[in-house]
Lab assay of single mutants.
Amino acid sequence: GSKLPPGWEKRMSRSSGRVYYFNHITNASQWERPSG
């Protein structure tokens, strides 16, 4: 298991139950796992 880039964390969408990734530094969110 590799770590996520700085700022990123795994989140669960309440509406759909899907996992997404959220960056608390930039407030960005995306479905794809961030690389870096």
Rank of each mutant, 00 (worst) to 15 (best):
G17R: 07
P5R: 03
L4F: 03
K3E: 14
G7W: 06
S15H: 14
P34N: 01
E32T: 09
S16K: 09
E9R: 07
L4K: 07
K10M: 15
S2F: 12
R18T: 05
R33V: 12
A28G: 06
Y20E: 02
P6I: 09
Q30G: 03
S2V: 11
N27P: 00
F22E: 00
R14W: 08
S15R: 15
P34Q: 01
G17I: 03
G17T: 04
P5F: 03
F22A: 02
W8H: 01
S15L: 12
I25E: 09
Y20L: 02
S16Q: 09
P34M: 02
N23R: 02
T26Y: 05
G36P: 11
Y20H: 02
W31S: 06
S29T: 14
G1M: 09
G17D: 05
S35G: 13
N23E: 01
S29V: 15
S35L: 12
S2Y: 14
R18Y: 05
G17L: 06
A28V: 15
G1A: 12
H24W: 14
N23W: 02
S15K: 14
I25K: 07
N23S: 05
L4H: 01
V19D: 03
G36N: 12
S35D: 13
Q30H: 04
G17E: 04
G7E: 05
K10F: 07
L4N: 01
R33I: 11
P34A: 02
S2Q: 11
S29H: 12
H24M: 11
R33M: 10
A28S: 11
F22T: 01
P34V: 01
G1P: 11
R14L: 13
G7F: 07
N27I: 05
E9I: 11
H24K: 13
G1K: 10
V19K: 03
R14Q: 12
M12E: 08
S16A: 09
A28D: 07
V19N: 04
W8P: 01
S35P: 11
L4E: 04
W8E: 00
S29A: 14
K3R: 12
F22Q: 01
L4V: 03
N23K: 01
E9H: 10
R14Y: 09
Y20K: 01
A28R: 15
G36R: 10
F22D: 00
F22G: 00
S16G: 09
H24Q: 10
T26V: 03
M12H: 10
P34G: 01
G1V: 11
W8V: 01
A28K: 15
A28E: 15
R33F: 14
R14G: 10
E9K: 06
W31M: 05
S15I: 14
S35H: 10
Y21A: 00
Q30K: 03
T26A: 04
I25P: 03
P34F: 02
P34L: 02
I25S: 06
F22W: 09
G1N: 13
S29Y: 15
H24R: 15
S13K: 05
S16N: 11
Y21M: 00
I25V: 10
E32S: 10
S2E: 14
W31R: 07
S35N: 11
Q30P: 00
H24T: 15
E32V: 07
S13N: 09
R14M: 13
G1D: 14
P5E: 05
S35E: 12
R33N: 08
S16V: 07
W31D: 05
R18W: 04
R14H: 12
S35T: 13
S2K: 10
M12V: 15
N23H: 04
R14I: 13
L4C: 09
K3P: 15
G17P: 03
P5D: 03
Y21G: 00
R33P: 12
H24V: 15
M12A: 08
E32L: 07
S15W: 10
P6M: 09
R14K: 13
G1S: 12
G36W: 15
T26F: 05
F22I: 06
S16P: 06
S16L: 10
Y20N: 00
K3I: 11
G7N: 07
F22S: 01
P5M: 04
L4T: 02
A28T: 14
V19Q: 06
W31H: 05
R18L: 07
M12Y: 15
S2W: 11
R14D: 09
I25Q: 09
P5Q: 03
S35M: 12
K3A: 14
K10A: 13
P5W: 04
A28Q: 15
R11Y: 07
S2H: 12
Q30M: 06
G17K: 09
S29F: 15
N23L: 03
Y21N: 00
G7Y: 06
N27W: 08
S13Y: 09
P6A: 11
N27R: 14
Y21P: 01
R33D: 09
V19R: 04
W31P: 03
Q30Y: 05
R33H: 12
N23T: 01
R14A: 13
G36Y: 13
N27K: 15
K10R: 14
Y20W: 06
N23D: 02
R14E: 11
